[in-house]
Design a protein around this nucleic acid. Structure first.
Lengths: 138, 138
DNA sequence: CTCACTGCAAAGGCTTTGCAGATTC
DNA sequence: GAATCTGCAAAGCCTTTGCAGTGAG
């Protein structure tokens, strides 16, 4: 969290209470918060916070590379995740719940194949879809 | 294309000119059309076609499993793809162009790992992000 | 003749943007 | 003091939905 604040400072961005709150929220809202989740948390600290400020800050954090936006099928909102180690996700098609999966099968050979198509690969995303424990029951 | 029409018939759906046009468009619009692309094509055949009809039919085709909806970062619209063999995609972060990649590294071991988390996996999506030939130049 | 389908229009929901005033630095 | 940032409000955009009329089977 301090790293993020430092990075913003070093890039010349100003540190406002709202911005600080958004960053704090990212660490305290639980995993995969939506912009709405962050707004709700933020309002407990500053009731005047607006959703637009949340979005502006989330977008900024994404631009500087410390945040991932995740768009999942079966849910129409974006969820956010602080960038940490490289990993992928399990997503429940029923309830939308997500879990991290420290597994990545992508090796160099895939990039070779891609480069045959004259693409320069810079990353990938991999999501597994299925049904979580609870939703399998029903 | 005839297969799709047969499948619809066998499930009791009616075959309207509009529906036929949407199906035709999926094969003649080029790869990865958006709903808009399909509308434009459809209007050359029937100028009265509405975007709502397009969406209703695309959603129907997705429900019966003959169409994939693909949501990509860096573009805010959905693109569609007729279901064929299992494969993944290369996506240009700059212009949004997509290419198919007949490569899939996902093996049984990934499913085992997932099932440790008590997820029942039914599928996965994998996209490679990068820059296409043209966009590497600029 | 019946039920599904279409077109129109409007609504929904998430996200972005313009603007004036307030805040950092 | 200058430039960024916020809050408000409104707009944008893709997609969905309600409804009455039309058309397929």
């Amino acid at each position: 969290m301090k790293d993020i604040i430092e990075l913003l400072r070093s890039r010349g961005y100003k540190m406002t209470p709202q911005r600080r709150t958004v960053i704090k929220a990212l660490f305290e809202c639980g995993k995969f918060p939506t912009a709405q989740d962050i707004l709700e948390y933020a309002k407990t600290i500053n009731p005047d916070m607006g959703l637009d400020t949340i979005y502006r800050n989330l977008n900024l954090l994404t631009e500087i590379g410390v945040l991932n936006i995740i768009n999942i099928k079966s849910r129409d909102v974006s969820v956010f995740e602080v960038v940490t180690n490289h990993h992928h996700h399990l997503i429940c098609l029923d309830c939308g719940q997500m879990e991290c999966l420290d597994y990545c099968p992508i090796a160099g050979d895939s990039e070779k194949m891609a480069e045959e198509k004259e693409f320069k690969i810079v990353g990938h995303s991999l999501e597994f879809y299925g049904y979580c424990c609870k939703c399998q029951a029903s």
